[in-house]
Design a protein around this nucleic acid. Structure first.
Lengths: 190, 190
DNA sequence: ATTTATAGTATCGACTCAATACAATTTAAA
DNA sequence: TTTAAATTGTATTGAGTCGATACTATAAAT
């Protein structure tokens, strides 16, 4: 038997669900659906090791089937292209087309970011930190990896001796400066 | 032509969309869907003036058609009952059944509230305040009313001379103590 | 060589959601 | 008072979501 929620909890849940609803509602811009925006946004931010249906699946916490559907929609709209991985014939690589990249720049959630801009710098910082804390806490409670950016990974090696400036010690691949700012599925905090 | 998002904005959007996705994901408990939980939660918190399809529609920021569907589902599951308003034959009153009330007590988002409990009291307060600020700012930017509770409304009259302890000066109706804690569609900050 | 694991796709059913059209009242105006 | 306009809901449609299940192809492990 569950105890009743106390009023703080009830209030927190209300806030969270309403906010989430607004976010979801915003995600219907430009003829895309929220889930499609989520995928597009991820693909615009993920490094090449992480642009696969599988990585997207675990990032979004969805099932493979759903992601497969979403990707088919994006492909049909000409926003995403699939390529066969030559090393592993099961794997599929995903890339945004030029149109896809341009669209990703006009993120459906931009209006939300604009609302944030109106608040004081201090509020902005507080809100961002709060969201971060809550997200991390929730992800951790479910045993999910947070999907950080490459640069802050324990496999990241700065200033490689030759070629590109950086290096990933896990995947044994060199990394550009831009690449090291991207989301990586393998990322583990340093 | 839109300027590119700066990295702070991009980060904020990521946080928000991921959090929203987790919330949405959580809303699949007990055989209900997120939108159904949203409706159930509202109906458990709203006062009798605000338990109508129309009020629910504007609270959730959905369209009438969608809400109508959602309510039909909840009715079919035996969680909600509709009653005809005798004064206005167009209007429909909504009430949770006993089963509905019990289910509302086991809110699908409870696990999220539990995660919050693990954090420090200070973090909890910060997070709740941040969510509140963001929600209000967003609602205001769209010109929506925030749907506060009756007690903090400018139409609220405390300690009525007779009958129930309080009174709503707008609807000319008396209010119980419990009723004055509920969400009201007519609420305007005092 | 045969299991077992991994990466994706295909399909189903219940539901969401925006959009549109529609029916039944109220309410306001002419 | 009789239209006209606004309000409250329902019905339907089409694209998509999402969990579940089943399935295919390929890699890895035993």
């Amino acid at each position: 038997m569950n105890k009743a929620l106390h009023s703080n909890q009830a209030n927190f849940i209300s806030l969270l669900s309403r906010l989430s609803r607004l976010v979801n509602h915003e995600g219907h811009a430009a003829g895309l659906k929220p889930a499609q925006w989520d995928a597009l946004r991820y693909l615009a931010q993920a490094n090449r090791f992480s642009r696969s249906p599988g990585a997207l699946t675990s990032y979004l916490g969805a099932t493979k089937g759903t992601i497969s559907q979403t990707l088919m929609s994006l492909e049909k709209k000409g926003l995403v292209e699939k390529t066969q991985d030559p090393n592993d014939k099961r794997s599929v690589g995903l890339d945004l087309t030029t149109v896809g990249k341009n669209l990703a720049r006009e993120d459906a959630l931009r209006p939300f970011a604009d609302v944030l801009e109106v608040l004081s710098k201090e509020d902005q910082k507080d809100i961002e930190e709060a969201l971060q804390k809550l997200l991390i806490a929730k992800l951790r409670s479910e045993g999910n990896r947070p999907f950080g950016i490459c640069k802050s990974c324990r496999h990241f090696r700065k200033d490689a001796p030759s070629g590109d400036p950086h290096f990933c010690d896990l995947l044994k691949e060199s990394l550009s400066v831009v690449g090291s700012e991207k989301i990586c599925i393998e990322q583990e905090a340093a």
